[in-house]
Simulated scan of single mutants.
Amino acid sequence: MNDRLKALADAGVSIWLDDLSRGRLKSGNLAEMIADYYVSGVTTNPTIFAAALAKGADYAEQLQGLTDVDEAITACTTTDVRDACDLFADAYRATKGFDGRVSIEVAPTLAHDTEATIAQAKELHGLVDRDNVLIKIPATKAGLPAITETIAAGISVNVTLIFSEERYREVMDAYLAGLEKAAAAGIDLSGIHSVASFFISRVDSEIDKRLAALGKDELKGKAAIANAEVALGAYDEVFGSERYQALAAQGANVQRPLWASTGTKDPAYPDTLYVSDLVADGVVNTMPEKTLLAFADHGEVGPSIQGKAAHGAEVLAEVAAAGVDLPEVFEVLETEGVDKFIVSWHELQATVKGALEAANA
């Protein structure tokens, strides 16, 4: 067992791997990471599956006889997620559903279609057929009511592509509204879980670019962590509210903050920056394998960011005063996030189309 990752887990951070492939499952690599690296969950996205299915040999057998590209994608991805869910079953039971989770995302082409997102969330949940699956829904304006309705149906959700405190509060409201509808329908709230994926490194990448243009290099590398500090303060407020306490009395669970996009993109920054500096009891950090292994090798557990919302707000105010339009930044990041996943989705479709032709030649 790795001592550095143990220290991180002991500080209350759930370590999830931001990657999944059939090769990782078949080789025993994922099982090894669970056993030796404190990995207690997995997240996926269209980019991850595009990379996984590009290694066509791992999926060739399952693709034989299939002809429809989207059906083939669904078959392959839900199989991988189901098998990963089974690997994490012990962690799921041991943590009463908070960990041992595996996420699968609705098609990013549905990001602005509420009803289609709800329908596909239910479809994916049924196809994976494991209690510890999380259905990923983007925090777009159209995604918010889809989150409410999916939670109301008793389906656990990973809300993705959150960049701002304002949108994060809307996400938490959508979650609580879903719990209230589920309770009214007589659904057991204790079986419903959710995480809210707050993106980190992309915030610094966009804001640093703008700060450099403004000649304010001294503020670079500070905004993303400050944004997370503010988000954690919002979380504490919402889940300390009377509204949530009324739901908790009926068995409801908090919607845990999840730090996503935690691999550093600027080589000038420490490669463990968005792990070491984002420690708080009860949060999830989902890491690319490179970042996880870097922390296992030389990472240090930093001080908790709990209670530092005021500090984070001060830093963001400095950034805004320097001339960075933060609302515009967050809008750009959401749009780019959806667009990047759509590009990956089309790459995935093209890869699977080629694999189907090869498998059925």
Results as ranks from 00 to 15, higher is better:
Val203Lys: 09
Val203Gly: 06
Val203Ile: 15
Asp204Met: 03
Asp204Asn: 14
Ser205Gln: 14
Ser205Trp: 02
Ser205Phe: 05
Ser205Tyr: 01
Ile207Thr: 03
Ile207Arg: 01
Asp208Glu: 04
Lys209Ile: 06
Lys209Tyr: 03
Lys209Leu: 09
Lys209Phe: 04
Arg210Val: 00
Arg210Leu: 03
Leu211Asn: 08
Ala212Leu: 12
Ala213Gly: 12
Asp217Glu: 14
Asp217Ala: 14
Glu218Asn: 13
Lys220Phe: 05
Lys220Ser: 12
Gly221Lys: 13
Ala223Gly: 12
Ile225Lys: 11
Glu229Gln: 15
Val230Gly: 14
Ala231His: 03
Ala231Glu: 05
Leu232Gln: 03
Leu232His: 14
Gly233Ile: 03
Gly233Val: 03
Gly233Ala: 08
Tyr235Arg: 02
Tyr235Val: 07
Tyr235His: 15
Glu237Cys: 08
Glu237Lys: 14
Val238Gly: 09
Phe239Ser: 10
Glu242Thr: 15
Glu242Ile: 07
Arg243Lys: 11
Tyr244Thr: 08
Tyr244Cys: 10
Gln245Val: 07
Ala246Met: 05
Ala246Ser: 13
Ala246Cys: 04
Ala246Pro: 03
Leu247Met: 12
Leu247Asp: 12
Ala248Asp: 06
Ala248Thr: 01
Ala248Lys: 13
Ala249Glu: 14
Gln250Glu: 14
Gln250Lys: 15
Gly251Pro: 11
Ala252Trp: 07
Ala252Asp: 11
Ala252Tyr: 09
Asn253Tyr: 08
Asn253Gln: 13
Val254Cys: 12
Val254Ile: 15
Val254Phe: 10
Arg256Pro: 08
Arg256Ile: 07
Arg256Val: 04
Pro257Lys: 02
Pro257Ala: 11
Pro257Tyr: 05
Ala260Asp: 01
Ser261Asp: 03
Thr262Ser: 07
Gly263Gln: 05
Asp266His: 08
Asp266Thr: 04
Pro267Val: 07
Ala268Ser: 13
Tyr269Pro: 07
Thr272Pro: 09
Leu273Val: 11
Tyr274Val: 06
Val275Ala: 12
Val275Ser: 05
Ser276Lys: 11
Asp277Trp: 04
Leu278Lys: 00
Val279Arg: 04
Ala280Asn: 06
Asp281Thr: 10
Asp281Gly: 04
Gly282Ala: 06
Gly282Val: 02
Gly282Ile: 01
Val283Arg: 01
Val283Leu: 01
Val284Tyr: 09
Val284Leu: 11
Met287Pro: 01
Met287Tyr: 02
Lys290Thr: 11
Leu292Pro: 05
Leu292Cys: 03
Leu292Tyr: 03
Leu293Thr: 13
Ala294Phe: 07
Phe295Ile: 00
Phe295Arg: 08
Ala296Ser: 10
Ala296Thr: 10
Asp297Tyr: 01
Asp297Asn: 15
His298Asp: 08
Gly299Glu: 07
Glu300Asn: 10
Val301Leu: 05
Val301Glu: 06
Gly302Asn: 15
Gly302Phe: 10
Ser304Gly: 04
Ile305Lys: 10
Gln306Ser: 15
Gly307Ile: 06
Lys308Asp: 09
Ala309Tyr: 02
Ala309Met: 00
Ala309Gln: 08
Ala309Leu: 04
His311Cys: 06
His311Lys: 14
His311Val: 15
Gly312Ala: 04
Gly312Tyr: 00
Ala313Met: 03
Ala313Asp: 07
Glu314Pro: 07
Ala317Thr: 01
Ala317Met: 04
Ala317Cys: 05
Glu318Met: 05
Val319Ala: 06
Ala320Phe: 01
Ala320Gln: 09
Ala322Glu: 09
Leu326Gly: 09
Leu326Pro: 05
Glu328Leu: 05
Phe330Gly: 00
Phe330Arg: 00
Phe330Tyr: 15
